[in-house]
Amino acid sequence: MTFSYSFKSAFKSLCREKWINLLSILTVASSLLIITLTAFFLYNIEIIANSLPERFSIVAYLKDDLSSEETQAVIDTIKRRADIAGLKYISKEDAIKELQHTLKDTGYILEGLTENPLSSSIEIKLKKDFVTPSSAKHVAGEIKKTAGIDEVYYGEKIADAIHLLRRSMQNMSVIIFLTISSGVIFVTYSTVKILFYRRKQEIEIIKLLGATKGFLRMPFLIEGGSIGFFGGLIGIIGAMLFYLAVTYRLSMVIPMLKTLLFPFEILVVLPLIGIMFGIIGSLIAIGRLKL
């Protein structure tokens, strides 16, 4: 019953102080929209970054004088490694064919060759977690030590780029999330504090009638949570409008934008994040007030 009173009281206050509440809701909505858009961009960058390790490979060139049994032994040794996602053996013949295919119209360059100058090789794909500059270097070094391997090549710069992109993304998302979260919490904190002072006389009366601190605080917690919830709902509408604008309108001009994906899960979570921030803001506000 106390809950029902608290909900009614909070709802009445939301309606009575509609302008200040509306302003707070819109501020929270804008902040949550920024979080959503950040998540949207990071989500798409993450997809791109995730696809990069699939393209990353280590190429191990085999010595020319290996028999087929020795070649198979090298392949088996490398296959047994825990950090390897897969490998592909490319024979000398396959390598020259691929080069001819790549050169296409300029294939005549190869016409003067009397023998195939290319080596057999093994193209090695690492597991996603091992595509870091240090892991790739370590794995390449160990493979090079394998008997029958002549030379190892790996895209050091690609591994560096992937790693840097990942780290920057993580840091950026943490900074944006913390900044915006603090903003949202501050908005609800200030709103609840103002609402408290506007109802101070009423609160004094309720205190004299025997209300506990919990009874006095509950409507403010609900009100703070509601501000966050409605902010989240409006944030969803804003995010959807943005997504539709990007995929339907802007993609007519920039077709690449059509491939962007939207993390729809965040739309469900957004009001919950709003409620959480609202309640935290309210808790700080009423925790600091003398009841």
């Binding site: 019953m1 106390t2 029902s4 009173y5 309720i206 009638l209 025997g210 209300a211 506990t212 009874f215």
Partner: peptide
């Protein structure tokens, strides 16, 4: 009713 709601009396 307020003094009763504070006490958690049913509506």
């Amino acid at each position: 009713a307020l003094s009763l709601r504070i006490r958690g009396v049913k509506e």
